[in-house]
Design a protein around this nucleic acid. Structure first.
Lengths: 335, 335
DNA sequence: ACAAATTTTGCAACCGGTTGCAAATATGGA
DNA sequence: TCCATATTTGCAACCGGTTGCAAAATTTGT
């Protein structure tokens, strides 16, 4: 159907190799030849078949982009940066939606079949099997928004979730809160559990206890439902650290719908700094995770991995900062 | 690097064709043979190379998914449905972010090189060149959330934007509003201009005039900025139809930040019914565009196109419904 | 103008599969 | 049991490119 190299060669009256060479840069072709071939190619509307060439070159320029979070708006930004970053480097994202796969390991299998050059896993609820499966398949993998295992044995880009949890606890304590609670995302998400771990350690180091609960998903509804449950159960804490903005915004909505004032009656601290957190009608105080930087660094790391196959696994962690808005009582000056 | 068909054939002591056949269903292989081959394949960890086979079969099962809207959360939902729908049908989405391409036509070129079986264009600001380019390249294309041209000469799935605009006007007029304005998205988006067209016609048929302005993008900030401009310019209308929820929510935020009450001082009507529109802290009255259905129908249509190449172009349009929330004054009973 | 060095070109094998066709094997009927 | 028929298997060519190698053409030096 499509025009092939052979047809171009015939029309230009040259060998197939010659045509191939004019379309691979760095190959030796005379100007005369190049012009002849380009003319024929233009006339025929030829464009080389990337997949056929991948067969011999061993590179498809396909990068698997795996995610399982299509409910948190956070990922739209991430997708934007991932895709434009990959494209800018002449790589193409093959998107995999883990949510709708019966067995997550099928994703690995599928990406193998499509000979992707590498994989970016953008998820914090990723099955632990992934790292080893990709390693066994010899596919370089970058885990974005994932857990940093201390001894970096896989490529990780993100924040230090334990640190972020501790930072949250410290922030709340500094604000004078004592009756503090942790409102997590899904228990299966390493982001939620690691943040809890750091949060817990920091609380303990101040001699404070706290309660914690989980929402089933990283979604508005999950956060809202969980907070409604807490309200109905009575005995609210003075402040909640929601392990993600989308959870926190859901919680905020639950509080509002029950007439509980924020931050006067209950405080909320989020994490992420979603665009929505800054909307006037939400105005959530939160800890900022630099989403764009993380996505962008993940692509950079992927490219390094491709250039330098034997490379040591590396973790790239970014700092978090507090974004002061309206859902926490202010820091008392001089307190 | 990876295990090939040939190695499996050697280990199983059979021909390469035999191995190929056990992995393509509908091929004639005896049970004995199948078992032998599967055993060898399992031992070697073989998985067939989808790209190599595409070379002879002419099908890659790759579907280009083109979009240029990575700011409107609306698309996250769309992506979710697109990707899971495609996966469920054994197709793989190759994502293209138009925003970051210097020349949109490059996208077509790229997708040709990767021999995609089809393309889903999810955008309402798509260059008109696309339809013809894909047709010339003989790649079936579905335009989701796009303009329905009356005489369907391309495959379109979405809503009837002119009708939706008229519906909006009618709704506002029924509510007793007379000083009405239209707050559009980007002028380049056919969704914005078509909605305006229908809106305009309906207003005219009631003998009413109205003003309209555009926001540069479909984004919160664009809507907010434009509404701030309108406020500062003085002379606000009684009600605004925001051509998209994200624009409307931005406008809402602008009004709130200036102490203008909604719906008492100014009314807002959105379009889309984003998840956020339903959040208590936003509570936007809006016209619902069935995003999931549209995405899902787009995938269905794509599959039909693949099964039946000579098929006539078709438009699938979905109805819109009003979602009553808190940003419009109520319909007076018996009025 | 000629030989040596350099560049350009084409041949042919290969990448990892598929598939039409004919040979080989299995099945059924009498 | 033997032959006709149906099924399974392997051969070899092909899909659309790439690439090592040697032959052909060009450039360089003198």
């Amino acid at each position: 159907m499509a025009v092939t190299l052979k047809e171009v060669a015939e029309r230009a009256g040259v060998s197939r190799s010659a045509v191939s060479r004019t379309f691979t840069d760095g190959a030796s072709v005379s100007d005369k030849m190049r012009r002849k071939v380009e003319k024929a190619a233009r006339e025929l509307g030829y464009s080389p078949n990337a997949l056929a060439s991948s067969l011999t070159t061993g590179r498809t320029k396909l990068i698997g982009l795996i995610s399982d979070n299509f409910h948190n708006p956070f990922f739209l930004k991430a997708f934007d940066v991932f895709t434009s970053g990959l494209q800018a480097r002449d790589l193409r994202p093959l998107l995999v939606n883990l949510t709708s796969m019966p067995d997550p390991d099928d994703a690995v299998q599928m990406l193998r079949q499509y000979s992707v050059d590498g994989v970016i896993v953008a998820s914090s609820t990723v099955p632990p099997s992934f790292a080893t499966l990709f390693e066994k398949a010899n596919i370089p993998a970058v885990f974005a928004f994932a857990r940093y295992r201390g001894s970096a044995n896989s490529n990780v880009v993100g924040i230090d979730n334990e640190f972020a949890g501790a930072f949250a606890a410290r922030t709340l304590i500094e604000r004078g809160y004592r009756n503090i609670a942790y409102l997590g995302g899904p228990q299966a998400a390493v982001s939620t559990t690691d943040r809890l771990k750091g949060f817990s350690a920091e609380m303990a180091s101040h001699g404070l206890g706290f309660t914690h609960t989980f929402s089933g998903k990283y979604s508005f509804q999950a956060g809202r439902t969980e907070m409604l449950r807490l309200i109905d159960q009575g005995d609210l804490a003075e402040v909640y650290f929601g392990a993600d903005d989308i959870i926190s915004i859901g919680a905020l909505s639950a509080l509002e719908s029950r007439g509980i004032r924020v931050p006067e009656d209950v405080g909320i601290l989020g994490l992420n700094d979603l665009e929505m957190a800054g909307w006037e009608n939400i105005n959530l105080t939160t800890i900022r995770q630099p989403i764009g930087q993380i996505a962008s660094a993940s692509v950079d790391l992927m490219v390094s991995l491709l250039d330098e196959p034997g490379r040591h696994p590396e973790a790239r962690l970014f700092p978090c900062t507090l974004i002061e808005r309206g859902t926490l009582k202010p820091l008392k000056i001089g307190a």
